[in-house]
């Protein structure tokens, strides 16, 4: 087939509306949040002292961290799926999220006695965290990966991994409302590890699913 023949066929298909990546991704993000909220409501529910805890510093800070990671990774994932788009803003945003978490860790180290650090880091529930965050992230990851199939990432596994960070951060945001461990030390270790698990799944699935 000559290239001009192919162009005839492509031009004849002009009327088929293009699958808009941005719109689809935004829809998938909303669906991801709703899906995680549903699983949270059915399986977990907020911790008993949820309202009181909102008055503390450490508890709301967890949502700042997970929210920052989710928003930054969403921006980056969308850029990665668009050929030729600059990923600088997404990388910077993700760096900012890491900086926020790092500042929280430093503040915690500054205001708490060294003897309590180990206990704060280990917490009560690290295994539950490592299980619940991926469970809450399953629907978000599926929705986001399906949406990214409309994209054209240079590296399908990288795009899948970043989608995994988005999904993991959404899952962690809901898990944070139930989790009794609020120390930034706990968040920095276990939340990060839980999100990394979801990112790994995203990379593996994405490397196959996001090829184009």
């Amino acid at each position: 087939m000559r290239t001009s023949d192919l162009i005839e066929a492509l031009a004849a298909d002009a009327a088929t509306p293009p699958a808009r990546l941005g719109r689809t991704f935004a829809f998938a993000f909303a669906l991801a949040v709703a899906g995680a909220a549903l699983v949270f409501a059915v399986k977990l529910g907020p911790r008993p002292d949820f309202v009181d805890a909102l008055g503390t510093v450490r508890f709301p800070f967890k949502f700042v961290v997970t929210g920052a990671f989710g928003a930054a990774a969403a921006l980056l994932a969308l850029r990665l799926a668009r050929p030729g788009a600059s990923v600088r803003s997404g990388v910077l945003a993700l760096g900012l999220a890491v900086a926020v978490l790092g500042a929280g860790v430093l503040a915690e180290l500054a205001v708490t006695p060294e003897a309590t650090w180990a206990a704060r880091l280990v917490g009560h529930n690290w295994l539950v965290c490592l299980i619940n965050v991926p469970v809450l992230s399953a629907i978000p990851l599926s929705a986001l990966l399906i949406a990214l199939r409309r994209g054209a990432p240079a590296s399908p596994s990288l795009a899948g991994a970043v989608a995994g960070v988005v999904a993991g951060a959404i899952g962690a945001t809901f898990y944070a409302a139930q989790c009794p461990d609020d120390s930034p030390l706990f968040v920095a270790v276990w939340y990060t590890l839980a999100i990394a698990i979801v990112a790994t799944v995203g990379a593996v699935v994405g490397s196959r699913l996001l090829r184009w």
Binding site: I7, G84, A85, R150, A152, W212
Partner: peptide
């Protein structure tokens, strides 16, 4: 060309066409 056609929903009107195609 096939990819450009099938993935033209990834082109953002605020983005130049040349680098997207390249």
């Amino acid at each position: 060309l096939l990819a450009i056609h099938l993935k033209r929903g990834t082109w953002d009107p605020a983005q130049p066409v040349g680098p997207w195609v390249a």
